[in-house]
Structure formats: C-alpha cells, structure tokens
Design a protein around this nucleic acid. Structure first.
Length: 779
DNA sequence: AAAGGACACCTTTTT
DNA sequence: GGTGTCCTTT
C-alpha cells in the first residue's frame, strides 16, 4: 500500500481507496476532506487511472491550485498537470473556448463580470424607455441570474405563465423582453456572463450529443468539492457528465452551505443518494482543526437548525480556552479591542500576524478594523471587497485589452471609446448604438463602415472615430507578435491612459498609477509563468481569461505575515490560529435581510458555524452597542447566535470598566474621535456648499475658486484667502467656531488640499482642510 | 463636449 | 461614508 495512505484515519481511508461508483462524503468542518480528495486522486492515478480523465471541481481557484500542488508532491509534477482541476466556471470556460462555436460563440468570447452585465442591462432599460426605479439594474440582474441558474432560458421564460405573472405582479411586465434583449446583446458582443458559463455548457451538452459523449468519455472520474454549494445548473452538468461511468464522488458539508443567495441548492447534497444507484455514503466526523471548546460551541449553535443531515462532529484535540465574548460601546471601540488583543496575544504567545483573522458579515465593516490596526502598526490585508480587477483604472486598461481581442465586446468599447477624452460624446455613442441595433450589427462594425453607413454624425466626429479604429487596429497587429506584457505596456503608454492617470497629481492619481503598474507587473509575471508551461502560450487571451475568473483570494502575493481581514464567505475552507468574529449584532449578523424565513435564518446560522469553525485555538466573538451604518450611529442588540451557544463553551470577558483605554496606545487622547469626525464633517461641508449656490450674483464674474475661498472662510473682512497662500503659519493661534482656540502644529499639502494640524485646547488635535475650516487667526 | 457639484442609494454575502 | 449617476454650467 502506498505510504501516504498511512497518514489517514480509518474513516478517511475508506472513501480514499474506493475507486469506482457513485459516492458521497459528508465531511464535517476540519475533518480532513481536502486530504481525502487529494489522496484519492493520487490513489486513482496509482491504480492506473489516466490523469487526463480525472475532473476535479473545486469552489475556488486557490483550492484547486493547492490541491494540485499536493498531488504533484505525491505523483510528480508531470502527471499532476494533466489533471482537469478548477472551479466550475474556469473549467467550463476552457471547454467553451473549444466547443462554443457549436453555439455560435467565437473562441475568444469575452467574459462579462457583474459590472459589465449591469451596465449592459442599464443601457437596455434606458433604450426601452422603462422606468429605472421600477427596473433597477441590480434587481433585474439578479432576477436574470436566477433564471439562468435554474436553466430557464428566454424561450422557457415565455412558456412559463407562472413566472411571467410573478414578474407582472412585481410591476415588471417587461422582464422577459429585457431578458431577451440582454441575451441577444451578449450574444452579439461575443460575451458570456458568469451564469452563461454554466448555462451555455448545459446547452452544449444537451443539444450536441456528440459533444456530450466526448466529455463523458473523457472525464471517467469526477470529483466535486463543496457539493453543498452547487446550484441547479452545476448539478445538471455534473449529472450529465457522470451519467455514463457513474464514477462520481461528491464531498461536502450541509452545515456549511452558505451560497443560497446565488442559487446554491442544499437539496443537491441532501438528495444525492436518490440521484444515483448504489451510492456509498461516508462520514468524516472527527475534527482535527479545533479545540473541544470551539467544536462544542459550533455544534451547539448548528443544533438550532432543523434542516440537516445526521452527523456528529467531535474532536480528540485539547480542550483549549473557552470562546471569548466581548462587548464594546461602538464599532470603533470594537476595532480597538480587537487590535489591542491581537497585539497582546502576539507578544504573549510569540505568534505571527498571520495567526490571526478578523471575519465579518459585510465588507463595510472592515474600515473600523483597519483604522484600529493601522494605529497599532499591525500589518493586515483585506481580502475581497472591491477586488483589484474591479477598480476603475484597471478596468480601463483591461477594456482596451479586451477590445483588441474581441472588438464586438460592446461594454469594453463603450467604456474606452472616449477615455481618455477624444471628443466622442454621449450623443455620438447613442447614435452609434441606435445604428448598430437597427442594422443588427455591432458597434465596431458600424465604426468600420462609418463612411458608407447611414448615421447622423458630422465629419469632424467621424474623423475621430476613424482615428479610434486605427488605434485599436494597430494594437491588434501588435498582438500578432508581441507578448501580453509588451502589448499591455504599449497600450497604457500610447493610448493616453498613462497621461490621464498622471495629470492630476492627487494622491488618488498616484494610487491609480501604482495600480496600473501593479497590473503590468501582474501581466509580466503571468507571461513568464505561462512561458514555462509547455502547453500554454502566455498570450493575451489566456491572461484575460485568468483575470476574468480570478478572485481576490487568488492574488495572494507571497506569504506575507499579515492579519487577514475578510468576509466569512471568503473564509470558507481556511483556518487560523486565532479568529475574531466581529459585529455579532441583530440585523447585521444575522443580516436584517435574511431573517424573514426560516431557511434564510438557517443559512445565516450556517454562516456563523463556518466562522466559528475557522478557529484552531481561540475564537473571539465581539459586538458593539452602537455602530456607524451609512454614516449614522445606530443602536444594536447582541446577535441571537451568541445566546444559542451552550454556556459551558463561552466566557464573557467584557471588562466592567469599559472605557479604560491606555492613553499611550490610543490616538484619541482627547476623547472619542469618531463622533467628532462626523460632527465636523457633516455640518460644515453642506453649509459651505449651500452658500456658494446663493453667492455667485453678488460677485463680479471671477474665478469660482476665489468665491470658494472667500466664502469658505466666512464673514471676517480680512482677505482670508491668505490662509491658502501660506500665510497661516505653524505657531499661529487660531479660533474655530466649533472647536474653539487652538495652536497650529503643522501645515501640509498645497492648493485646495492644504491641511493644518491644529491642537485645540478642548477638542484636541484635529486635521482640518483649510478650504472648509472657518478659522480666524487671533495670534 | 467636458467638468464639477448635487443627490440618491447604498449593504449582505461572490464565481 | 463612498460611489455612481444626474444635472448644471461653461
């Protein structure tokens, strides 16, 4: 027997060496399911299964990559790299590149991300003259997404009286027509959205039996990880592919199903045994990750759910410290508590930053944590949120690259046809769209025929359009020979993007430039990485595909020693020595939007279960009595989930005297920074803005900037513009309407961004924008 | 057509 | 608190 198998316990070994037939592994949190999957694949290969015929579908690219590396260590690099392993989306995108032509898609189809899709829907709704308040793009998008995930095509939609009535009842009778227009436009643009990658795969396998047979024959052994989070579309793909050989192994944990909002159907795992004959069922119930207290706490919570499979997770690990529960006054305090605890624990136990994770329900909660960590100089990294590739400047560059590859890509074209500004305005673009829709052509085709096509655009503008076409075509020529990196660099420099990002010189502009630089480095790394692989070309197409399906978790650079901040969703599958689950408050976690039905609430509870079970040694649960939400201070109650934990596993550690903060370690020596921040920003800014509106006729036409200055500085007759010109000096004593008397400590920035750091007698040290601050120099 | 301010909406979670 | 979109001004 292969020696790696000796590393498995009996429960793990059985499913690992079961080669043929359908099987389901119900794997509790931390029970070693990745290990089983990895070894099972290695075992299959040792038993003579061709590595080309194994398909392993994972939930993240990262999981796939790590598993592949581990398998490579056992069976060797050259064999491991033949495995088909990746997310549903990436594997089937790859197949659609080859087979998409059956459905009329070019092999270089674009993958639209959520932003692209929603923008397209926005234009469609506008073009159809519909009420945008009734047809909100986000809602329309998620509606269409759920149709697609349920395999309801446009045709099926119009055959489904019930659905149409539901939409009509929701005062959206045009949903079907929007859906149709959206699908048509994507098709015309040679684009697929995320859901299409699954839906079109289903279409391919259903309509083309020879294609189905080809892949059934190819993928003789199929493994699916995180099966509890598959949606209907994914479920059908797996069933179709596994139908011939029935060598299907699914792994999952119903207690960790947390993606219902995007169509995941927990019944796929609950009913797996009905879908195939002679299904072998295995259970992994021993947790190797966490202490007894953590496992006990997690179990006691999940017991409150009605819908679940029989399973008892237990551990032989040490008892460990109890789960700690901490209450704060505000979210700011919560952040400071977390930061100081990390700081102390790190010192006391000689731990690394990477031994800590802060998990939250919503991305917006990261800010309070960031502020606190920064003040303590604790390095951290935020995962998720606005991903790198979603940033404006990055999407701008990528849009150029996308257009080079697929000029039909309407969203990319609309984004950059006038960016940087080339005098092609909205009116022109609208006319192009109308012409394109009328003739059933793409905008690019219209542009190419601009001389002959009937369109109401004047000659000057036509010249600009021709220049744009020439520019893109020159890039296309370059793409024939250059690497993705050479091309991307050339595009950034020659398109005027670089100049655009460079021109303002603001801190934001500098950040933009840095991001673009990082993107270019990313392209370079990618090209070099791909060139080492024999079967990859490292060309633009491969890079863009990689980018379209990359998640933030995949962009891990090195193994920096940082505290990890992320949503609980993103944390699934990960583990950390110490875990802080923050913001455990009613309406936040569980979310106010998920408490209407039992099933929604149960999903929130599973999410909490996932959060708790990320911890190996110590879990902290924190909540605040009030929290800033949408810029407002809102009272909150502790989450019901805390109540649901059996008392024996938790310990309340809220100090009696909550406000004892060591002044040396806290930046807000003069009191709580948070309320002041709001009081300072809110009233002053609007006052100034309102005044400006009334002001203009009083003054002779001068530059608006002068108006601002005089206005902003208020009533005193001293030309307060002085403060801008540097006449406010360090050491000056000033008076402020709200903060009173203070001394200027420091002046930084210039122009309208000039800021002064002022130490007020009562209010403490504040940094004020001179443009807004009403200051009188009194000494 | 470009630029800048006002305003609305936002927040669940993501491939 | 931040972003995206609308509206106004030049």
């Amino acid at each position: 027997m292969e020696k790696y198998l000796s590393q498995l316990n009996d429960a793990q070994l059985e499913p690992t060496i079961q080669v043929d037939g359908p099987m389901i592994i119900i794997a509790g949190a931390g029970s070693g399911k990745t290990r089983v999957l990895t070894y099972r694949i290695a075992y299959l290969m040792h038993k003579g299964v061709d590595s080309f015929s194994i398909l392993a579908l994972t939930f993240t690219n990262k999981a796939a990559r790590e598993m592949k590396e581990r398998i490579a260590q056992i069976v060797g690099e050259s064999e491991a790299k033949n495995l088909w392993m990746g997310t549903f989306h990436s594997v089937f995108a790859r197949i659609l590149r080859v087979e998409g032509h059956h459905l009329g898609f070019p092999s270089n189809f674009t993958i639209y991300d959520t932003q692209d899709s929603q923008k397209l829907l926005g234009s469609i709704i506008k073009e159809m003259n519909l009420d945008k308040d009734l047809y909100k793009t986000k809602q329309v998008y998620s509606r269409i997404s759920s149709y697609k995930n349920s395999l309801i095509t446009v045709k099926a939609y119009f055959n489904n009286a019930e659905l149409m009535e539901a939409d009509a009842m929701a005062r959206r009778p045009q949903m079907g027509n929007i859906y149709k227009a959206y699908v048509d436009r994507c098709f015309k643009a040679g684009a697929m959205d995320f859901d299409d990658l699954l839906l079109r795969t289903n279409e391919l396998l259903t309509r083309f039996p020879t294609v189905l047979a080809k892949y059934q024959d190819k993928f003789r052994y199929i493994l699916v990880d995180e099966y509890q989070d598959t949606n209907h579309s994914q479920y059908l793909i797996v069933r179709a592919l596994a139908d011939r050989f029935q060598n299907i192994c699914v792994v999952g944990d119903d207690a960790q199903s947390i993606y219902a909002f995007r169509g995941a159907n927990i019944n796929n795992i609950l009913n797996f045994q009905r879908d195939y004959d002679n299904v072998k069922l295995y259970r992994l119930e021993q947790n190797y990750r966490s202490t007894k207290n953590i496992v006990g706490a997690a179990n006691s919570v999940i017991d409150h759910n009605q819908t679940k499979l029989d399973k008892v997770v237990w551990t032989a690990n040490e008892e460990g410290p109890k789960v700690k529960v901490h209450r704060s006054l505000t979210d700011g305090d919560e952040g400071r508590y977390v930061a100081s605890t990390i700081w102390e624990t790190k010192m006391n136990q000689q731990l690394n930053n990477s031994d800590f994770a802060i998990l939250y329900r919503t991305n917006a909660q990261s800010r309070a944590m960031e502020d606190a960590l920064r003040k303590r100089n604790i390095p951290y990294r935020i995962y998720g949120g606005l991903s790198f590739y979603q940033r404006k400047e990055i999407k701008d560059v990528l849009s150029y690259l996308r257009l080079i590859l697929n000029p039909s890509d309407e969203e990319a074209l609309k984004r950059i046809i006038n960016y940087p500004a080339r005098g092609i305005g909205q009116t022109t673009i609208d006319r192009l769209v109308v012409a394109a829709n009328g003739l059933g052509k793409t905008i690019w085709e219209i542009l190419k025929e601009i001389d002959t096509v009937q369109v109401n655009i004047n000659n000057g503008t036509k010249n600009k359009l021709r220049d744009f076409v020439t520019l893109i075509e020159s890039y296309q020529v370059m793409n024939q020979t250059a690497t993705a990196f050479e091309l991307a660099e050339h595009v950034v420099k020659s398109s005027g993007l670089m100049r655009e990002f460079n021109k303002d010189g603001t801190p934001e502009g500098v950040t933009r430039l840095e991001n673009v630089e990082e993107l270019l480095n990313g392209v370079k790394d990618f090209v070099e990485g791909q060139q080492e692989l024999a079967d990859a070309k490292g060309d633009l197409a491969e890079f863009l595909e990689d980018v379209a399906l990359a998640t933030d978790l995949d962009n891990e650079k090195g193994d920096d020693d940082v505290v990890a901040l992320m949503t609980i969703h993103l944390a699934k599958g990960l583990e950390f020595n110490n875990v802080f689950v923050v913001g455990l408050e009613e309406d936040l976690f569980p979310s106010a939007m998920s408490m209407n039905t039992r099933s929604e609430l149960e999903e929130e509870r599973r999410l909490f279960y996932v959060a708790l079970t990320r911890a190996e040694k110590q879990a902290y649960l924190t909540y605040a009595l009030s929290r800033y939400r949408w810029g407002k201070l809102v009272d909150s109650e502790p989450s019901r989930f805390i109540e649901e934990i059996d008392d024996q596993f938790i310990e309340n550690i809220t100090p009696k005297e909550e406000r004892r903060i060591n002044p040396m370690l806290s930046a807000d020596i003069f009191g709580d920074v948070e309320p002041n921040k709001v009081r300072f920003k809110k009233p002053i800014q609007p006052k100034f803005k309102k005044k400006e509106k009334k002001a203009p006729e009083k003054f002779t036409p001068s530059t608006p900037k002068n108006l601002k200055k005089v206005d902003a500085l208020g009533k005193n007759d001293v030309p307060s513009t002085n403060l801008f010109d540097g006449n406010l000096a360090v050491g000056n004593i000033v008076s402020h309407m709200r903060f009173g008397k203070g001394e200027v400590l420091k002046i930084e920035g210039k122009g309208t961004d000039t800021k002064a750091e002022i130490k007020f007698e009562v209010a403490g040290v504040k940094k004020l924008l001179l443009r807004f601050a009403k200051l009188d120099v009194i000494g």
